Simulated assay, not measured.
Amino acid sequence: MVGILLLILGGLAILVAGAELLVRGASRLAAALGISPLVIGLTVVAFGTSAPELAVSLQSTFNGQPDLAVGNVVGSNILNVLLILGLSALITPLVVSQQLVRLDVPIMIGASVLVWVLALDGAIGQLEGGLLFALMIGYLLFLFWQARREQNPAVVAEYSQEFVADEPKSAGRFLLNGFYVVAGLAMLTVGSRLFVQGASELARLFGVSELVIGLTIVALGTSLPEVAASIVAAIKGERDIAVGNVVGSNLFNLLSVLALTALFARGGVPVSPGALALDIPFMVAVAIACLPIFVTRNLIARWEGALFFGYYIAYTAYLLLDATGHPSAARYFDFMLIFVAPLTVITLMVSLWREWLRRRERKMAVQATR
């Protein structure tokens, strides 16, 4: 047992350190090559924080453990919204930009639904992985185009301070940052191997499925960069970065991590009936729930953060009850489905209706003053 925990913790530490080195080296190399800080923040850093998920998912697939790979992506997306945004909003209400509401969140919902549809036949094939990655390329091109049009000096200054270090440009610095990238990639490879080995042995030790381990322990471990980035951003008052980081990470998980895993795996990535019956639909529901919550006053209030956090605890509790064969698992699931979920939907719809009335009244008041 001690050896398994050392594998998991050691692999996780190497993963996180590797991701940090990769982000640091790549962002500074990009800055030295004249790429704008805004583009670096939207692309290089966002991809870097998803690097642990990519490394673990690829390693799991190559090891013949596709449930870990699928559980990692699905579990990370659920955790990003419910746990990370939940905890961040409990610290301080989070600001949601108009672009997230109008563009990024709908794209996240569409990508989640598309993955569900593609997985309905029991696998995400190589061609389907290629389709998802092509959508990622299109999204990145749009981000580049949008960043070139960004004229707000406050936004540019924020990204410059956040993602690009002010350092002298020299051949030595260039080589050092290149070394950071190579070392980061190497550490991601080694860390993912150790982490996947430890997680699979833990699943065998407790008789729990690899899907459940992927949805919980692996998802939490690979999401640590997002956890740290969002909570620190919330504490520092950078509340828009906390939300944008989560939405961007979820998009990268679906359109890059899962896509590349399916693309490089021979025969694609199999998707288990359990993931199709519960976990992927729940991921889609969580993505859809973001829209009414984000729209209301363009803010995630503390009570909404508590709602997110409560659902993560409830979901994890059901996974553990079901995995251990507890007799109350079925009753617990029925209670959540019949009572809690409809009550939540009604609450969100009422909030959305009140927000529509508020905006309508404000629009009428503006028209009346003209």
Results as ranks from 00 to 15, higher is better:
residue 147 A to L: 04
residue 145 W to G: 12
residue 90 L to R: 01
residue 89 A to T: 06
residue 157 A to N: 14
residue 140 L to D: 10
residue 83 L to Y: 03
residue 114 L to V: 10
residue 118 L to W: 00
residue 100 L to A: 14
residue 106 P to A: 10
residue 148 R to N: 13
residue 114 L to F: 07
residue 84 I to K: 01
residue 143 L to P: 04
residue 54 L to P: 06
residue 84 I to C: 02
residue 131 L to T: 14
residue 156 V to A: 15
residue 146 Q to K: 09
residue 54 L to V: 06
residue 119 A to T: 02
residue 83 L to M: 10
residue 69 A to F: 00
residue 97 S to H: 10
residue 128 E to H: 09
residue 144 F to D: 03
residue 57 S to T: 09
residue 159 Y to F: 15
residue 118 L to K: 00
residue 88 S to N: 03
residue 164 V to T: 14
residue 127 L to D: 10
residue 53 E to Q: 08
residue 106 P to I: 09
residue 117 V to I: 11
residue 117 V to A: 08
residue 66 P to Q: 02
residue 76 S to K: 02
residue 88 S to M: 03
residue 104 D to F: 01
residue 57 S to H: 07
residue 110 G to V: 12
residue 87 L to C: 11
residue 142 F to I: 07
residue 139 Y to H: 13
residue 96 V to T: 06
residue 81 V to A: 01
residue 61 T to S: 15
residue 71 G to R: 02
residue 158 E to H: 15
residue 128 E to Q: 15
residue 113 V to D: 06
residue 52 P to F: 08
residue 159 Y to A: 15
residue 124 I to M: 05
residue 58 L to A: 06
residue 94 L to H: 00
residue 70 V to L: 07
residue 156 V to N: 13
residue 145 W to L: 09
residue 117 V to P: 00
residue 72 N to F: 04
residue 109 I to C: 12
residue 89 A to M: 03
residue 160 S to P: 12
residue 135 L to R: 13
